[in-house]
């Protein structure tokens, strides 16, 4: 049945029941004026911000984790002073980011540091990326550190350099170990993009709110928003599960 016709028929009712009323709310929040397109406009921003933030987060995370691990695994008596300074910077970065709320970081970046910027969506993505970087760094570092030190020793005792051992022995194994945590971090990041509406980023929540100011009924737009996030997360979890199963096959062959 045509949704509009259904809506009109319910609207004509004197006393619509709960379901008929719910359908009318949904109709106004989704079909009316082609509003469903609006959510997808927001969704594309959400994905765009997630991808940018993820890229920044992974690059930052790998850099910081490399510095931190390399610093901790230096031979005693052969400390590199430059590495020491960079390591200290990395530690301060991780501590501050993990010790302050995402929301406050967004406000500081959006209203203080980049107060004059008008690309607030980008500022939001940058902030999310910087935030994510700290968590990714700790996940990677944890994965590298949790690996049996015998693996590093075996590589080094064969005469392989630190970087070669990392590249061929440690990182491939650590990657498999950290994949679930990285996946979770990605899901958190995806959901955290909803926070950038604080600095006026135009993602799904922004458009849901805009639709509420037209329909004056917040229930349906926010439920639709929640459903869209849920679908995204489910799709991603499914992909992640597939990848993990494939990687695990090499263990059992």
């Amino acid at each position: 049945m045509d949704p509009t016709a259904l809506y009109e028929s319910f609207k004509a009712l004197q006393n619509p029941n709960f379901f008929q009323d719910a359908y009318m709310q949904f109709y106004k929040a989704w079909f009316a004026e082609d509003r469903w397109l609006t959510y997808f406009k927001g969704l594309s921003t959400t994905l765009y911000v997630t991808v940018i933030a993820l890229a920044i987060g992974v690059v930052l995370g790998v850099l910081v984790a490399t510095v931190r691990t390399a610093h901790d695994q230096q031979r005693p008596g052969r400390h590199n002073p430059f590495l020491g300074i960079v390591n200290a910077v990395c530690r301060v970065y991780v501590t501050i980011i993990r010790g302050t709320p995402m929301m406050v970081q967004l406000m500081i970046m959006g209203f203080a540091v980049f107060a004059t910027s008008r690309e607030k969506t980008l500022v939001g993505a940058l902030t999310l990326g910087i935030n994510s970087g700290a968590y990714v760094a700790e996940i990677i570092r944890g994965g590298l550190m949790s690996l049996d030190p015998g693996q590093m020793e075996a590589g080094r005792s064969l005469g392989l350099g630190y970087l070669d051992t990392m590249r061929f022995v440690v990182i491939p194994q650590a990657f498999k170990a950290i994949l679930p945590s990285l996946g979770n971090e990605f899901i958190v990041l995806l959901k955290d993009t909803s926070l950038i509406s604080v600095v006026s980023g135009k993602e799904i929540v922004y458009f849901a709110r805009a639709i509420v100011t037209k329909t004056y009924e917040p229930m349906a737009p926010y439920l639709i928003t929640a459903a869209m996030y849920l679908v995204l997360v489910l799709i991603f979890s499914w992909l992640q599960g597939k990848l993990e199963r494939r990687l695990r096959q090499s263990d059992r062959r």
Binding site: E33, D34, R118, I211, V212, T213, K214
Partner: peptide
């Protein structure tokens, strides 16, 4: 450049689509 808060009908709001 006009700064505003488009959650305030009927003074300013986000229009449906590009209407």
């Amino acid at each position: 450049i006009m700064a505003t808060n488009c959650q305030f009908p009927p003074y300013e709001m986000v229009a449906d689509g590009t209407s």
